[in-house]
Design a protein around this nucleic acid. Structure first.
Lengths: 326, 326
DNA sequence: AACGATGCTGAATGTTTATTCAGACGACCA
DNA sequence: TGGTCGTCTGAATAAACATTCAGCATCGTT
C-alpha cells in the first residue's frame, strides 16, 4: 500500500500550505492527519511536481572577466566566479565545481595538488560517475595528520564524486634532505605515479605565496629557509615548488627536498589549471602564467579583477598567446 | 536606504537555498550575513518574484454534485465543497468563502443567522471592502456570553472582511413568553432591523435539527418542549424556528418566544442560502427546500451526497423548479 | 497459524526558520 | 552640534518544520 495518496489530495494540502498560507499544523487539523504527515505529504507533492519552485536563474560566473583574462594573459581557460559580498573561497568552490567537472573528459588523467579553494571545489563537484577519470596525487602530504586540504584527501573526495581511480602518492611532501628524497622517489610505487603525471591532460593546483604559505604556517619552512627563498626571488609556489617572477623554480636547497610533480612536467600538461581565490596571489599567478606553469585559472571575481588591474598598463603578456576558449 | 539588495544578490541567495538545497545558515555563511537576514532576503526574493512557487490548482468544489442538486432539488444555487478525509466543516468554511463572497453584490442587504459552518465561512471570507453590503442580524443571541457562532459575532466578522455596515439585533434569541417577546419586537430598534430583513436580497443561515440542536445543548430548550416540538412534527430549525417536513413552522408555544426573522420573510428572500455541513441534516434541508425557505445550499460533499441519495428514488422536488445558475 | 518483512502512523523530539528586540547607523532638521 | 526619526542589523528567542522512533497493520511466506 505504497503512496495511496491521490494527486487531488496532495493538491489540496499543497494549496492550503503554499497558496493559502496556512501552517502545517492548521493543514493537519483540516485534513485530519498529524503535522508530521503533512510535512511528509508536502515533500511528496514537491517530488511529484504538484508544487513547483522556480528560481530566476543566477549566473555565478563573470564571462566578461573570463574573456578579458584569456585575452590579456593568454589563457586557454578561465572560470571567474562572482564574489561580491560573499565568502570568495566558498563561493568559488561551490560554483566553479560544475565548470571544472565539465572540463574533465572521459578517462582523463588528472593531476591533483592541495589547496583550500581546491578542497572547497572538490566537495561540491556534482555526483557524476560517468567520466571515470584517473586522478593522480601530484604532491606529497604536508602533514602526518590527514588534513582536509591535502592533495590526498582532495583526491579521495573527488574520486568519490567523479568515480574513476585514484593514484595516491604515499609520501610526505618534504624530506629532510636530497638523499632521502631521492631514495623515496626511486621507489616503484612513487615512480608509477610520476609516470602517470607525465601523461596527465588536466592538472588542478593551488598557488601559494611566500608571505601566506601553508608551509610557513605549519612550520615546515623555517625562517632561514624563507629568507633564502626570498633572496632567490621566490614570488609563488605550486605543489611545494617555489618559483621566481618568471616562473622558474628557485634554486635553493629546498628544491631537492620536495616530493611532487616537477614544474617541467606541469608545464607540459595541456590543461594545467590554478584554482585560487583572493587578491593576495596576483604576483604569484602572473609569474606562473608567464612561466607557462599553468594554462588556465579558476578564480573569484576579486582575484580576477586584481589580475586585470595589475596588467592594465602592460597590455601583452609575454607568455605564448592563445585565443581559444572551449 | 530601503531595499538596497540587487536582484542579482537575491538570485544568488535564492539559488543556494531553493535550487542547491543549502540551509539558511549555510547560505548565511557564504553570503557573510546573519541567518535572520537570509530569512528576510528570501522572503523579499519571493515577493519580488525571483522565486516563484506554483501549485497545481486544486478545485475545491464538486460541480457535478452542484448541478445534480440544482436539478434534483430545484435550487437556484449550490456550492458543494470536497470533503473526503477532511474536517468537512472547516473545509467548507475555507473554500466556500470565495464563492459566497462572489454571490454578494454591491450594496446588497444580507440577512445573517448563526451556525458553526457559517462561522467558519465568515472568518475565511477574502478581504474585499469594495462591496459594502448591509449585513443584518436575522436572529437574536442564544447566549449572553458572546459566542463565536452567534449571528451577532458572525456579523461583526463579516463586516470586518467585506466592509459595509452591520445592523445588530440587540436582543436575545428567546424570551420567556410571548408578551415580553412582543414588547421587545415592537421596539423601534428591533423594528428597523425587521424592515431591512424584508428587503434582503441574500440570506445566509444554518440549519439545525431537533436531535442535534444548539438550543438543546445550551439548555435553552427543555425536555418537555422538545417533546412538544417532536409531536408537532418538527424536523428542522432555521433561525430558532422549527418547521415540519413541509417547511411549515410548528405551531407550539415556542414559536411565539423567538426573536428572529419570520419564516415568511425568509421565503421572500431571493437568495436564501443554507450554509451547512454533515450528513445528519438531510431531512431538515429537504423540508426547508420543500417549504421554499431556502433557495440554495452551501454544503460539503458528504452532505450533498446524502441529499442526492435520499432523493434518488423521488426524482422531482415539489418546490418551484428553477434552472438558472449564475 | 505463526512469523518476519515492509510500510504507515502520530507523539516526541531535534533541527531549521521566522520574529522579536535592543542597539547602531545615517539622514534630516533645528 | 545635538536631537529625532526611520531603517537596518544580528543575537536571542519563539515558532514552525522535519525526523526519529516505537507501535500497529498488512502483507507474503513457511
Amino acid at each position: 500500500m505504497l503512496n495511496v495518496y491521490s494527486d487531488d489530495q496532495l493538491r489540496l494540502l499543497a494549496r492550503l500550505y503554499y497558496a493559502d498560507g496556512l501552517g502545517q499544523a492548521e493543514v493537519a487539523r483540516l485534513a485530519r492527519v498529524s503535522q508530521a504527515k503533512v510535512s511528509r505529504l508536502l515533500a511528496l507533492a514537491r517530488e511529484r511536481g504538484i508544487v513547483r519552485i522556480t528560481v530566476a536563474d543566477y549566473d555565478p560566473r563573470r564571462p566578461d572577466l573570463e574573456a578579458a583574462l584569456c585575452r590579456r594573459l593568454g589563457l586557454a581557460e578561465a572560470v571567474v566566479i562572482k564574489s561580491a559580498g560573499t565568502d570568495a573561497r566558498a563561493a568559488t568552490g561551490h560554483f566553479a565545481a560544475a565548470a571544472v567537472s565539465r572540463l574533465i573528459g572521459t578517462s582523463d588523467v588528472v593531476a591533483l595538488a592541495g589547496g583550500r579553494t581546491l578542497q572547497a571545489l572538490a566537495s561540491h563537484l556534482p555526483l557524476d560517475r560517468s567520466r571515470q577519470p584517473v586522478l593522480v596525487q601530484a604532491m606529497g602530504s604536508v602533514e602526518p595528520s590527514a588534513s582536509a586540504h591535502d592533495a590526498q584527501e582532495i583526491g579521495r573526495v573527488m574520486t568519490q564524486r567523479l568515480g574513476g581511480t585514484f593514484l595516491a602518492l604515499n609520501a610526505p611532501a618534504f624530506m629532510p634532505d636530497k638523499r632521502t628524497r631521492d631514495t623515496l622517489v626511486s621507489l616503484e610505487q612513487v615512480r608509477a605515479v610520476q609516470q602517470h603525471l607525465s601523461r596527465a591532460r588536466v592538472a588542478l593546483v593551488g598557488v601559494g605565496t611566500l608571505a601566506n604559505s601553508v608551509f610557513v604556517e605549519r612550520g615546515t619552512l623555517d625562517v632561514a629557509m624563507v629568507r633564502e627563498l626570498r633572496r632567490a626571488g621566490a614570488v609563488g609556489e605550486i605543489c611545494g615548488r617555489f618559483f621566481d617572477d618568471r616562473g622558474r623554480e628557485c634554486a635553493t636547497g629546498w628544491r631537492d627536498r620536495v616530493i611532487s610533480i616537477e614544474l617541467a612536467q606541469l608545464r607540459r600538461i595541456p590543461l594545467a589549471l590554478a584554482v585560487v581565490s583572493g587578491t593576495d596571489r596576483t604576483a604569484a599567478i602572473e609569474a606562473a602564467i608567464r612561466g607557462g606553469l599553468i594554462k588556465g585559472l579558476v578564480i573569484d571575481e576579486a582575484g580576477a579583477a586584481a589580475l586585470l588591474m595589475s596588467n592594465a598598463s602592460s597590455p601583452a603578456a609575454p607568455a605564448p598567446r592563445r585565443k581559444s576558449r572551449s
